[in-house]
């Protein structure tokens, strides 16, 4: 399988281990990602806070380039915010002629919105991908209890994402189970992490992160798994107050790609697991060791 790939800004900096793990996993299961030529920021979240048309034009520019360069390929991204902005532009261009006209005039290029926009969860749960994952996983993560955190924008708004279940989605649970891990039932799968307001309204958004982590741990999770670099950053980097103010226990947070990569035998160094703020390698290594595998950390 081949897709046009929109990495998004976080993938180039803070989400280093997510990026390396994604490259590793996609390579192993035979999914080719072709980076969109000269892509630009999708605008999340200030683009549409400032100006509606700019909020549509920013993602549409990259989509139009993708459709021009690779007209046969659908588009995929690993970031929930990018996914929402890209899909929103696609949806608007498809359903509202006036908007499409304005978008095309703004980006100075036709945008037909002919191809679909997917997130990693969509493409990893295709039958072909699931078979390939099964074939490549060694099964060593058995017994590792994880809470699958989807966040808002991988599932909402329903008319844009088309997600079948917005309160208790299953795609990531299915994927981590294929990797041998044990997804727990919990209540905060799609609760908001505060997104960019962790910057401009920090004191009132930090508790959003803490209650997510608390619920994950109350339901037995040893780690939280994400499908978005921004969710991951918020849940991981904002744990300070959780441990200091509420007496919570730090909990590793890593992406679904990292979990898959380790289950497929990638070493900690290969995917830069050491780059996590809250150590992630230890919990994965000890899960592997329970089955006589494991890597040095």
């Amino acid at each position: 399988m081949k897709y046009s790939y929109f990495p998004g800004c976080s993938m180039e900096s803070t989400a280093k281990s997510y990026r390396l793990a994604t490259e590793y996993v996609m390579g192993r299961i035979g999914i080719e990602l072709i980076e969109i030529k000269d892509w630009n920021c999708c605008g999340a979240t200030s683009g549409h806070a400032l100006n509606e048309l700019l909020g549509l034009a920013l993602p549409a520019r990259s989509l139009a380039i993708a459709e021009r360069e690779e007209p046969e390929l659908d588009i995929v991204t690993g970031c929930a915010s990018c996914y929402a902005r890209l899909r929103h532009a696609m949806h608007k261009a498809r359903t509202d002629n006036a908007s499409r006209y304005n978008i095309e005039k703004t980006i100075e290029e036709p945008y037909g919105a002919k191809r679909e926009v997917y997130n990693f969860l969509d493409i990893l749960t295709s039958e072909a991908a699931k078979t390939a994952i099964r074939e490549n996983v060694t099964g060593g993560l058995r017994g590792l209890k994880v809470a699958c955190y989807y966040g808002c924008l991988n599932v909402r708004p329903a008319e844009v994402t088309g997600a079948p279940d917005r309160e208790n989605p299953q795609a990531m649970d299915e994927i981590v189970a294929l990797a041998g891990a044990d997804p727990v039932d919990w209540a905060f799968k799609t609760e908001c992490c505060g997104a960019a307001h962790q910057n401009d309204a920090a004191s009132v958004t930090r508790p959003l992160v803490w209650r997510i982590l608390k619920n994950a741990q109350a339901n037995g999770a040893e780690a939280v798994v994400t499908a978005c670099p921004m969710c991951n950053l918020n849940l991981e980097m904002r744990q300070d107050g959780y441990t200091k103010k509420t007496g919570g226990k730090a909990i590793p947070v890593f992406s679904v790609s990292e979990l898959l990569a380790v289950a497929m035998g990638a070493s900690a160094g290969r995917i830069a697991l050491e780059a996590h703020h809250v150590p992630a390698a230890k919990v994965l290594a000890s899960a592997l060791r329970r089955h006589g595998e494991g890597f040095a950390i």
Binding site: C9, E12, S13, T14, K16, D38, W39, N40, C41, N51, E52, L53, L54, A57, L58, R61, N102, K105, T106, I107, E108, A272, E274, A275
Partner: peptide, 29 residues
């Protein structure tokens, strides 16, 4: 330490195009 942030940002080459796009979005909206 872990090179999660660098000094030189990755960037879009066609920033002139981006700036034109922003100006048009502001004008048309």
């Amino acid at each position: 330490t872990h090179k999660l942030i660098g000094v030189l940002p990755h960037q879009t080459k066609n920033t002139a195009g981006i700036n034109r796009m922003i100006a048009r979005a502001e004008k048309f909206s």
